[in-house]
């Protein structure tokens, strides 16, 4: 399939497919990503959803989707995608469906399912070479239940279950790296605040078949503790501090689509969010701040 051209932001669609009126929080970074991606994917898409914030996208009798949607469970959305994809292929083969009746099968998952409970089903779907797109909105915690620590929560962040002392002791899991190790046909990281980059990547993913990852950082006003108006600004800072590298894996190679120069100090990003406030007050936690900066520096040193 030929991918549409997004030369500049002016090529981005100004009419949006996703219906308004969803129950997502005001300023939801995950909803922003889904909305931007849906404009590129088009309505001939079936979302197979894993339990998470986006479970509440469709609450009877209200759905924002113009195509199809199937809610499954927390652990097995990729298996649901397998069933839908296989059934569409069977019906195509039997002549019950024309090419125009086909759908792009997209798993929609948060980081709780994506990095944790659903990882086995995801890994197996990649093993089977399933033709699907995996869209993960990563808000770095179990957001729908009140932002408990998930395998995607970054080092030092406070959550509802790591509220004391220095926050989460562990490191954020590298889901992009796990996917790349499985040699998918495409993998990319995106953020809603970089819509042109996102549109190009979703279009590139859509033009290919096989297992494809779109991993989106989803700034979360409710869970991270910032004003809803700051969602996009915080997404920009995640990129400009180098905390959220924008990259893609195509034809066996990882390329960075944005190399922040100069890279802003990570504190520019961290200090915007209540979940990191304990690293600055009552006095700065120099050790954890240095650890976070060192981890980001090491990443970019390896890249450059």
């Amino acid at each position: 399939m030929k991918e549409p051209m997004y030369k500049s932001a002016r090529d981005l669609p100004s009419a949006h497919l996703l219906g308004a009126g969803t129950a997502m929080c005001a300023g939801c970074g995950g909803l922003e990503v889904v909305r931007e991606a849906y404009d590129v994917l088009g309505e001939n898409t079936v979302f197979v959803n894993a339990a998470g914030c986006m479970t509440l996208m469709s609450v009877y009798p209200f759905t924002p989707f113009r195509g199809s949607w199937l809610y499954t469970a927390m652990a097995s959305a990729p298996a649901g995608a397998q069933g839908v994809r296989d059934a569409l292929d069977i019906r195509r083969a039997k002549g019950e469906l024309e090419a125009g009746d086909d759908l792009e099968v997209v798993v929609l998952t948060g980081d709780g399912a994506g990095y944790g409970m659903g990882l086995s089903a995801t890994s197996a779907a990649i093993d089977r070479g399933l033709d699907f797109l995996y869209l993960c909105y990563d808000n770095e915690g179990y957001g729908n239940t009140g932002q408990q620590t998930s395998p995607a929560t970054p080092h030092g962040a406070r959550t509802a279950t790591d509220g004391a002392l220095a926050g989460v002791a562990g490191e954020k899991k590298d889901l992009f790296g796990i996917w790349v190790a499985n040699r998918p046909t495409y993998a990319a990281t995106v953020v809603g605040s970089e819509p042109l980059d996102l549109a190009r990547k979703v279009a590139r993913a859509k033009s290919r078949s096989g297992p494809r990852l779109i991993l989106a950082l989803a700034p979360c006003p409710t869970g991270w503790g910032f004003e809803p108006s700051e969602t996009v600004a915080i997404g920009h800072l995640a990129v400009r501090t180098g905390i959220w590298p924008l990259k893609e894996y195509v034809d066996g190679r990882v390329e960075h689509t944005r190399r922040p120069h100069p890279r802003l100090p990570v504190t520019d990003y961290l200090k915007t969010q209540a979940r990191f406030a304990h690293l600055f007050e009552p006095e700065p936690n120099e050790q954890v701040l240095a650890e976070i900066q060192a981890s980001v520096d090491a990443y970019w040193d390896a890249v450059e």
Binding site: A20, G21, A23, T63, G67
Partner: peptide, 12 residues
């Protein structure tokens, strides 16, 4: 739900 974009009836 047998139709698209019925969520617009929710006045958020």
């Amino acid at each position: 739900i047998h139709a698209g974009a019925t969520s617009v009836e929710v006045r958020t």
